[in-house]
Design a protein around this nucleic acid. Structure first.
Length: 185
DNA sequence: CGCCTTTGACCCGCGC
DNA sequence: GCGCGGGTCAAAGGCG
């Protein structure tokens, strides 16, 4: 997605447990409308089969035993400079989702290999780092639970899968795979 | 046996 | 320069 003119930063994940992340995308044609559409219809439509029951009013849905429920999402771009000298900046798009779940591992249909875990400041829960194991696919995700609301799991995806989903599950990542509207970098 | 997790070390950017 | 915080590496071990 080269055309984004603005990007949304999550509230600093180490200092804020704000559970209502606003979504502000003003990219090209499909950013906002499609994203919202999928979120409002596709996401929830399919999530209901899995006890998904929250949209933006996540705070009122405080029921960890319900399993997973979609809580919120955000997208933002990350500007990075390559470590190598003389390389241009690498732009990555990250999608952050908040999910109410009593389990950290949200099986989203892709195969992930954990490659790290770090303690996060001001957060008593560690953050886990996963990488997609599909060859040539360097999609990463971070999973982190909030101190202020232990029922909330924040999953941050970085990059996009350039391959089909590997398991036929009907959870939200399956839908994510269908909303690959942006070209891979 | 292959794939995965665990875990400390390492690296890097940034602020002081 | 140094320390801190975040991100990654890689060796070692676990498990099906």
């Amino acid at each position: 997605m080269e055309n984004y003119t603005s990007f949304l930063r999550l509230p600093s994940p180490t200092t804020s447990a704000n559970s209502s992340i606003s979504l502000s995308i003003n990219g090209n044609s499909h950013s906002l409308s499609d994203f919202e559409g999928i979120k409002g219809n596709g996401f929830l439509g399919l999530m209901t089969g899995e006890e998904m029951n929250a949209d933006t009013g996540l705070k009122e849905h405080k029921n960890p035993d319900q399993g997973k429920s979609f809580a919120g999402s955000a997208q933002y771009e990350v500007l990075k400079f390559s470590k190598k000298k003389g390389e241009k900046k690498v732009r990555k798009t990250r999608y952050a989702f908040q999910t109410r779940s009593h389990v950290d591992i949200l099986d989203d249909g892709y195969r992930w290999r954990k490659y790290g875990q770090k303690a996060v400041k001001n957060n008593k829960f560690p953050r886990s780092y996963y990488r997609c194991t599909h060859q040539g696919c360097d999609v990463k995700k971070q999973v982190q639970r909030l101190t202020k609301d232990e029922a909330v799991v924040v999953t941050t995806y970085e990059g996009m899968h350039s391959h089909p989903i590997e398991k036929s599950t009907d959870n939200f990542e399956n839908i994510l795979s269908q909303m690959q509207i942006y070209p891979a970098f």
